[in-house]
Every structure is written in C-alpha cells, then in structure tokens.
Computed example of a mutant assay.
Amino acid sequence: MLVVNRFTVPQIDVTSFVDRARVALRALAACTGYQRGALTCALEDPQSWCLMTEWESVGAYRRALGTFTVKVEATPLLAESLDEPSAFEVLVDAAPGEEPVAYASDRAMESGR
C-alpha cells in the first residue's frame, strides 16, 4: 500500500514544515505494518512537497491512523495535504532485475474488480 500526501508549502514555511513532517514520519514509522517513508520536494517547483509512506496492507495503514500518537503527531500535518486521493493499492511490483509481480486487490470483493 502506497500513501502519497502532496502539499503546497510557501518558501517561508519550509523549515517548520520539514520539522513537522519529521515528527509525523517518526510517529508513522513506529506503527505496525509501516515499511518506509520519505519526504520529497519537487525539482521543478520548490513549493511542491510530497510525504510518501509504504505499508504492508490497507488494514495496517488504517490501524496506524487510529493510534493516539499518529492522531496527535501526524494527523494535523496530513490534514494540510491537498484534497485528492492519497492511498493507493500496489497491484504490480517490480524489483531490480526481476519480473514484475501482480497482486490481487484487497478490495476485489467490494469493488467488483
């Protein structure tokens, strides 16, 4: 599961934003099912930022959002992200030098896929 939260951050707020993103990543990283995360800035537009996290499953991500620490330390930042889809299911994965692997959707039964 891939979660991509995009932000528009004015240059004057970057230091504070990065500090708050580090706190959010620390809270998320302490949760069961967290695999990795990164804070990125667009090369073409220094006001465009992305907080990306990977999770072992949709359930792990949803449970993480319900923890007290995430509610206090990450949710306020996540609430500032652009209003757009942010959680994506990994349906095909490819490691270096290996064939891509397809996965069944966790949502297959509910979505009719």
Rank of each mutant, 00 (worst) to 15 (best):
R62L: 15
F88I: 02
A87T: 13
P46Q: 07
L51A: 08
D93G: 13
A87S: 13
P46A: 10
S81C: 10
G97Q: 08
A95N: 08
L82H: 07
W55M: 09
V92I: 14
R62Q: 14
G66F: 03
V58P: 03
D83C: 02
G66K: 06
V72M: 11
W55R: 10
K71Y: 05
S48G: 09
F88A: 03
E73H: 12
D83L: 04
E98H: 10
A94G: 09
A74D: 09
T75R: 14
D83K: 07
V90G: 01
A60I: 05
K71A: 13
D93H: 14
L82I: 13
D83Y: 00
A87C: 11
E44Q: 13
F68R: 12
E56F: 08
E89K: 04
T67M: 03
W49L: 08
V90H: 01
G59R: 12
F68I: 06
L77E: 08
V90A: 05
S86C: 10
D83T: 02
S81P: 00
P96G: 01
V70F: 01
R63V: 01
Q47R: 14
K71V: 00
T53S: 15
L77W: 09
S81M: 06
M52S: 09
R62P: 04
V90N: 01
V72I: 09
L51P: 08
T67C: 01
A87W: 05
V70M: 00
K71E: 13
E54C: 08
T75C: 09
E56Y: 05
L82P: 00
C50N: 07
P76W: 06
G97P: 02
E80K: 11
P96W: 03
P96Q: 07
V90M: 01
A94L: 10
E89S: 02
E56S: 15
D93R: 15
S48A: 13
K71Q: 15
